[in-house]
Amino acid sequence: MNYLKDIQEPGMGTWYFEIDNDGVAYRQMVYHDDGTCITSNRKHYFYHFMLAEHPLDAQESYYKEISQTEFEKLWYEQLQHGLEDWHRTKSLFPVGTRVEGYIEVFFPQGTLINLLEPQAVGITDTSALKTETPAEWLYPRYRVFAEVSGYDEVNQWVLLTRSKVAGSQYEEAEVD
């Protein structure tokens, strides 16, 4: 993995990216001038799940390469802000529990699932979903049933297996 920093125009904050050799972003942070931060592992009330949608060209002049240590230090600081929620999520979703939620977004790591509890995010294997799900059901808000198989401590996500997409969506009123 490679790590980049991009200082945007005034008022746009400082952006940090973890990218693979093809420029695909796996983690992202935006530190704003007012001290707030948006991270790709948590849903933001305005920006939703923020992660670069297209590969980044690390050779562009506005990117500065940084060390993994620098990136991980900043990421770890942000994880600490959500630690109470993370402990609550793990207690609500022990390994082996059958869960229900809905598709939020597709990331390089997998499909993020809203687990119907504040700050509770699950992740499941997108390729496994695709093999058993009609393409027209692979969209946000489609219901998902799965089983908890573990935890991703780096992103504070619940790992899901045996995920099945139902042929119905949650209505807007149900997901807000």
Rank of each mutant, 00 (worst) to 15 (best):
Q119E: 11
K73Y: 14
Y62H: 15
K130T: 06
N155I: 01
S61L: 13
S91T: 12
L112W: 01
E117V: 10
I123V: 15
T126Y: 04
F46R: 11
Q59S: 15
K43T: 03
E84V: 13
E132Q: 14
Y151V: 02
T69P: 07
T89D: 13
L51M: 07
L92T: 05
F46D: 08
D85E: 13
I103H: 07
L92C: 01
I66Y: 01
L51A: 07
R141K: 14
S40N: 12
E77T: 13
I66W: 07
I38R: 02
G122E: 03
T124D: 03
E104I: 06
R98L: 04
F71P: 00
D57F: 12
E132T: 11
V30L: 10
G35M: 06
L129Q: 00
A52L: 11
C37D: 02
Y47P: 03
F106Q: 06
Q78V: 10
E53M: 08
T131E: 10
N114T: 10
Q80S: 15
E117D: 05
A120I: 10
L56K: 07
P108G: 09
C37N: 10
A52D: 12
F46N: 08
K43L: 05
D33K: 11
L56G: 03
L160M: 04
T161G: 09
V144G: 00
P118I: 08
Y151W: 11
D57V: 08
S67Y: 08
T39C: 08
G35V: 10
K90Y: 06
E100Y: 12
Y45A: 06
K43P: 03
E147S: 11
S61F: 12
D152W: 00
S91R: 13
E72R: 12
F106C: 05
Y63R: 00
Y102W: 15
P140H: 06
Y45H: 09
T126R: 05
G96M: 08
H48I: 07
K43S: 02
E100L: 10
P134F: 01
L129M: 09
I38P: 02
E84C: 06
Y102F: 15
S40Q: 10
L115H: 10
Y139G: 06
V158C: 01
D57Y: 14
T131W: 13
L92R: 08
A146E: 00
R27T: 03
S163T: 06
I66S: 02
H54P: 04
D152E: 14
I123K: 02
T36D: 12
L51W: 06
D125Y: 00
T39I: 13
H44E: 14
V148I: 01
L115D: 00
D34P: 12
T39H: 07
D57W: 12
E117Q: 15
V154E: 09
E60A: 14
Q156H: 15
D152K: 04
L79K: 11
S67L: 11
T69Q: 14
T131M: 08
A120N: 05
E147V: 03
L51P: 07
E53H: 10
R27Q: 09
H81S: 05
F46Q: 11
D152Q: 06
M29N: 08
E117C: 05
K164T: 10
H32W: 14
G110C: 09
R27H: 12
T39R: 04
M50P: 06
L160Y: 00
V121I: 14
A120Q: 03
L112I: 15
R27M: 05
K130L: 02
T133E: 01
F145N: 03
Q68V: 01
R27E: 02
E53T: 12
